[in-house]
Design a protein around this nucleic acid. Structure first.
Lengths: 329, 329
DNA sequence: GCAGAATGTACTCGATGCGAGTATAAATGG
DNA sequence: CCATTTATACTCGCATCGAGTACATTCTGC
């Protein structure tokens, strides 16, 4: 298990675009490898903790679903990741299966308080962490909210277009007006004019809506404090990209599971319908799982075989990746 | 141009695995969204600046090729990326076409000096930046070294196996001894026993060699100060992954170029031979470039058409990605 | 008990992408 | 003018994957 975790703490993922304006302010930094301890800045860690329950991808929130959990980084901590892991486990009472760094930012306009308090700029380091379903359920009273509460337009599993999406695209098209480049961005990001919907572009869609001034409309998803919603979008983008080529999904599932459970989890994360036969074919081919010999029970319909994840496959997967067979309803 | 840069500061890439031991040290952090300014840590920026000259991928170094350029992050800076961009441009005298955050770390054992000086832990944020060939040549006296000076085993362009690689794999195999998991890692990472060579796994290979105690052997590549060589490996991994699905290569090329120049640049970065007809087919299909109408001159052989990059394609590429047709010599 | 719903499982077909190989054309330099 | 270097076009075949169809098994409710 520790071997698995180690091997896959190395991975790919979507990056965070946060540079809104390019206003250079450096000038006097020495061109040298020696760093002077002149710049002291408080550092903060922000966690996007995700679990999947009731076919909904969820994120741990505070303050009535308005904020992501965060805490200061203290000098006694040995490393960022190990410190954050211990902290989360102490708080939720359950282990974090997977933890990955997302992005570090230090925008002055990010949190007005930081200037008032310290007079300097806060550095924030965001992390994505995965927690198993049953662990999340037994956790110590945090509030787990569905992703789609904040990004309703990202859930394309239903037979129809997500609620509010047509209105959003109307508004965006109106905003783009005659600007060809903006029109192209809208069409591409939201799958208009015959272009395919790309589920990974969560952050880019959110930023487009931000530019168009739509993110403060409660109708278009619940806002969060500060830029927490943007950070969440980053995490979703990263995870949606990641499940395609790395077996992180299994960090969200119980020890043994049915293939449909696995599929539903992937569908919840990606916000897409998957083609069942093809999904099973892929899982088969990649030899990611093995039968436990047990059968599922308690559900209606024909009982399914139970499977467990095969960490033994380890290296081979890193090459091939876990592919997702998509399908439109 | 600015549109291009903006759109592609959002992207995927390889992540940094640096957690060597899991020794939790946090305990008393408040479970709250409010951060107290109790943890103050100096922050440092580290840049991996890359250019390609003479078919060699190069990195800007200091102190005789022993260190990567770095500087403290100061509270007057507006944002990490904009500050770093300005700083680099001031130092090299030329614009940085592309700048992307790599990883943030805060290992206590990373730089012993930081403890002595400040008594607290340094946070280091690493960046990958790309500079055009001609710009790099005219830069203000920094030392541009080939990547393969530090990672000779990563250059697989020649007809033969890279120098030293057979010896390395021998040593690794001996180190793995009878441990099945270690053997699997060695075989997979170094393409032994019929497994394919995966050029993206630069960091993983380096870390394996680190574990096996081979990185201090000068025969196996030149060492760098501290963990700078590991940071460089991270950057190479990220860039090698990135050129496959994002048009960053063009940030390393002059305004107009021949298709062979483009291919040679990609080959330099990936350390692989590419199949020329297939390479051109891919470039064609993706409509990434357009003819300038000019022809190359001054080289032996038949003159080639000159091409320029087409930023107009912008969004379409984000979907398709830039694929690389590989080939073995 | 039986109908129907819900789930599980197997197979086929066709388009596409891509690795690999081959052939030909055009310019340079001795 | 011939060897060399570079450019460019075309073909073949395998693997992958989206999409569709068919069928099997068990539960629930009447």
């Amino acid at each position: 298990m520790s071997t698995f975790r180690r091997a896959f703490s190395t991975s790919k993922g979507i990056e965070f675009a946060l540079e809104r304006t390019l206003k250079p302010m450096w000038s006097d930094i020495q061109y040298t490898g020696i760093s002077l301890p002149s710049g002291l800045a408080p550092a903060e860690l922000i966690a996007i903790l995700t679990a999947v329950t009731d076919d909904q991808p969820r994120v741990m929130t505070l303050r009535g679903g308005e904020a992501l959990p965060s805490g200061p980084f203290e000098s006694s901590h040995r490393s960022l990741q190990s410190g954050l892991r211990a902290w989360i486990e102490a708080q939720t009472g359950h282990p974090v299966g997977y933890l990955e760094q997302l992005y570090t930012f230090a925008d002055k306009d990010r949190d007005p308080r930081s200037e008032e308090v310290t007079g300097s700029q806060r550095i924030s380091i965001s992390y994505l962490g995965l927690v198993r379903e049953q662990d999340a359920a037994g956790a110590r009273r945090p509030t787990w909210r569905s992703w789609y509460r904040y990004f309703p337009w990202e859930d394309h599993r239903g037979d129809h277009s997500p609620r509010g999406l047509p209105l959003i695209t109307d508004r965006l098209t109106a905003w783009a007006a005659a600007d060809a480049l903006k029109i192209q961005r809208v069409d591409y990001l939201f799958g208009l004019k015959g272009k395919p919907w790309n589920e990974e572009l969560v952050l880019q869609r959110y930023e487009l809506m931000y530019e168009a001034g739509l993110v403060d409309t409660p109708e278009f998803g619940v806002p969060m404090a500060g830029d927490n919603r943007r950070i969440l979008a980053t995490g979703i983008s990263r995870l949606r990209a990641k499940i395609k080529y790395s077996p992180v999904v299994f960090e969200l599932l119980p020890e043994s599971f049915t293939l449909l459970q696995l599929q539903r989890t992937v569908e919840a994360l990606s916000g897409l319908h998957l083609h069942k036969p093809n999904f099973r074919r892929q899982i088969d081919q990649q030899e990611l799982v093995e039968e436990t010999g047990e059968m599922s029970s308690g559900t209606s319909g024909r009982p399914a075989r139970l499977f467990r994840y095969r960490p033994a496959i380890l290296e081979a997967r890193m090459l091939s990746g876990v592919r997702l067979p998509l399908s439109r309803p």
